[in-house]
């Protein structure tokens, strides 16, 4: 199990697919990840499978396959038992302190209780993460030196 870090983020399948297909808050949130090499997107195979299937259903198979190839290069893979909720289990086993989801049920106390005590994880809406994300403060907590600003092109 990976040590927990505030710079490790899980985006549930709805956020991953909305980032690509809808934009808005999901893209704003994940742009923070894409723009900073020291912020890590954590995702299991089942989590990416869900998002890829949704992209294929709502768009087309080619776009889904190309998205999968690109997101595979961005994410840090993590394994978890079959049947676990892919986002929560990715956070639990991947040391992610943020889970981004549009699903209100996942933000409930019951869902939070499933991972509390193992990982200090905050389940939140993408808009909240995009608004509250403070890279300068976070950089000081996880890296040495002064925050250098975004170090990646989020559209690359």
């Amino acid at each position: 199990m990976t040590d927990a870090s505030p710079a490790r983020v899980v985006a549930d399948a709805d956020v991953l697919a909305a980032d690509l297909l809808v934009g808005g808050a999901a893209r704003d949130a994940l742009d923070h990840v894409r723009a900073h090499s020291w912020v890590t997107l954590v995702a299991s195979e089942p989590l990416l499978d869900d998002a890829e299937a949704v992209v294929a259903e709502l768009a087309d198979d080619d776009l889904a396959a190309d998205w999968r190839e690109r997101v595979e290069a961005l994410r840090d893979p993590v394994d978890h038992p079959d049947g676990d909720h892919p986002a929560l289990a990715s956070a639990l086993h991947g040391g992610a302190m943020h889970v981004l989801t549009f699903e209100e049920g996942l933000q409930s106390a019951a869902a939070g209780a499933a991972i509390r005590g193992r990982v200090e994880t905050s389940v939140k809406q993408p808009r909240a993460f995009a608004t509250l994300f403070d890279p300068e403060s976070l950089y000081g907590a996880v890296e040495d030196g002064e925050y250098p600003g975004p170090d990646r092109d989020p559209r690359a």
Binding site: P6, A7, G83, D84, G112, A113, A114, I115, G117, S137
Partner: peptide, 18 residues
């Protein structure tokens, strides 16, 4: 339902983060 296997869980809320 958000369950993960083997998790005891507790009642303490935590909203720490970046």
């Amino acid at each position: 339902d958000g369950a993960t296997s083997g998790d005891a869980g507790d009642d303490e809320a935590d909203d720490g983060g970046a």
